[in-house]
């Protein structure tokens, strides 16, 4: 058997050949590494062969990284997608989440150990996803339809009544909507009800929900998070992608139609997470370098301890 067939495939997309050459050398022992400087070629490769992980640059002449990753998501949804960029505008960060549904947002220059860990983690998840997909194809089991699932709840964590109106309009009939003004209310609701989607602002007056959003992804891997915020902070968004696995960013006030679509995608995704355990791994979060729960009240900390988060 050819050795390259036993290794998972890593696809590198960058218009700077020295980047792809360098990364290829880093990963060639563990992966079958393919490289291209062109987004069209990258999508074609992902269509014609199983690609476990793709790392794409953002700024490229023919196709921007976000578009490459969106294209790959369409032709090969099980491929894990990572964006690697030297400098990205906010639009690219938001696009990479909302359209590319990326696993990690990496920045140049990167840390060798970090990128190794991220790519290995991505490859493990991809293996599970590809295997499960193959199983589903073979067994022809329509597992989703077999189990009628109860309608999961939607939780809004925000004091803003305008946000409540927006979420209310986007909540389908039959899905209960819970409104928490503060984090402790949200924790109470999460322990009392089955919540599928959480819509949260990252700021609550002076308090930040960033740590809690990250911690909740650890304690509730099936919870799909939409961040609804006015905040336009590049570093913060990157942190929320890598450590919070936020599903969508929706700018405030934003477009109602888009939000309705985002909510539907989030509910669909929650269903997948519930029925396919391996899919939960796709949301595995990176370790945070700072304590997640610093500054939270004892009451809130108590909830997190009950959920098994002790950071």
């Amino acid at each position: 058997m050819n050795e390259s067939n036993t290794k998972p495939t890593l696809l590198l997309v960058d218009d700077e050949a020295r980047i792809t050459r360098s990364l290829k050398m880093l990963f060639r022992n563990e992966f079958n590494v393919l490289t291209t400087d062109n987004g069209h070629d990258a999508i074609e490769i992902a269509r014609t062969q199983p690609v476990a992980v793709v790392i794409s640059d953002q700024r490229m002449p023919i196709m921007a990284g976000v578009d490459v990753l969106r294209g790959i998501r369409e032709v090969s949804p099980n491929t894990m997608r990572l964006l690697l960029t030297g400098y990205a505008d906010l639009a690219a960060v938001i696009g990479s989440v909302n359209e590319g549904e990326i696993f990690r947002f990496l920045q140049k220059p990167w840390d060798v150990e970090q990128i190794r860990a991220d790519v290995r983690a991505a490859a493990q998840v991809a293996e599970l996803s590809f295997a499960a997909a193959a199983r589903r194809n073979n067994e022809q089991v329509i597992d989703e339809a077999a189990q009628p699932l109860s309608r999961p709840g939607i939780l809004l964590l925000d004091q803003d009544p305008v946000a409540y109106e927006l979420v209310k309009r986007a909540t389908p009939q039959g899905n209960p909507l819970y409104w928490a003004r503060h984090l402790d209310e949200a924790m109470e609701l999460l322990s009392a009800h089955t919540i599928g989607v959480m819509v949260a602002d990252v700021l609550d007056g002076q308090a930040s929900h960033v740590g809690a959003i990250k911690a909740l992804k650890q304690s509730h891997p099936q919870l799909v998070t939409i961040v609804l915020t006015q905040l336009r902070d590049y570093e913060l968004l990157v942190e929320l992608i890598n450590q919070g696995q936020v599903f969508r960013f929706h700018p405030k006030p934003g477009h109602v139609g888009t939000f309705v679509k985002n909510m539907q995608s989030a509910l669909d995704y929650h269903k997948i997470l519930q029925t396919r355990p391996e899919a939960r791994q796709r949301h595995a979060v990176a370790k945070s370098d700072k304590p997640l729960l610093a500054g939270l009240s004892d009451r809130v900390l108590g909830y997190f301890r009950r959920f098994g988060v002790n950071n």
């Binding site: 020295r18 050398m25 880093l26 030297g86 060798v112």
Partner: peptide, 21 residues
């Protein structure tokens, strides 16, 4: 500065990677 940061970060990316390898 943002533009220049991008220009510098790309070579910095592979130089750092190569040195560590």
């Amino acid at each position: 500065v943002a533009g220049v940061a991008h220009e510098i970060n790309t070579p910095l990316g592979y130089v750092g990677n190569n040195v560590q390898m």
